[in-house]
Amino acid sequence: MKIVVPLKQVPDLVEDLDIDDNGISLDYEYLKMKLNEFDDHALEEAILLKESDGAEVVAIAIDGDDVDKMLFTALAKGADKAVKITGADPYVDNHALAKVMADAISGMGADLVFTGVQSAGDRDGQLGPIMAVHLGAPSVSVVTSVKVAGGAVTIEKEYSGGMMAEFDVDTPAVLGIQAARQTPRYAPVSKVRQIQQSASIDEVAAGASDGAASSSITKMAHPEKGGGAKMSSDIDEIVAILKEKGVA
């Protein structure tokens, strides 16, 4: 079984996000980027399946700043192979990204493609289901459990209020992973360095990304501060509020 996991870097939301002078994109120059946390869960679930059922796990990403490090880290965690797609913009919207990814993945003979269910900048939709259409494969989003059963997988999809549904899905399939069964593992820097010495990253050239439906950003802005919270720096004030509300 082969599981392909597309990885994408997104802005670290803990940091302040600046808007470029053009007013329609983030200022990426000083932005701290990190692996999309849901992609980390997708990779973890793939590696867990490799450990339980046997699988070849391939991590794939569009070439860009720090992408080698991200891919070597994936190898250090347990991926068998890393591929980077050259000649494409890593910050394109998901419709264009889905096309580039599908082109690169279509010849790989993947049984499963695990994407993070969403990512921080999903302006034009989510990668997984769009890519699935290009690959001609079924897709399910918001998956929290994957069990392999012959030529199919049994999955759990999460709804709201703690409700879920179980589905059987024929492979090849694209699954948008919400959460792996366990917290994504951590790869120590020493192990990543070691992998960097011994392993290599395959490269494939990007196909055309045109033909994808698109929309344009006309404005980006920080949300206007509403009335907002009354700020306090005094614990006694908070205590007084709790007493006033009759709960303390």
């Binding site: 419709h95 999903d122 034009d124 939709g125 989510q126 399910v140 918001v142 999809k157 439906a213 929309s215």
Partner: peptide, 20 residues
Amino acid sequence: SMGMDMANTLSAQNGLPMAA
């Protein structure tokens, strides 16, 4: 959860621009 499946699939199948 459901909308994510349906909206993206429709957008890709019919070539329609989408905003999430």
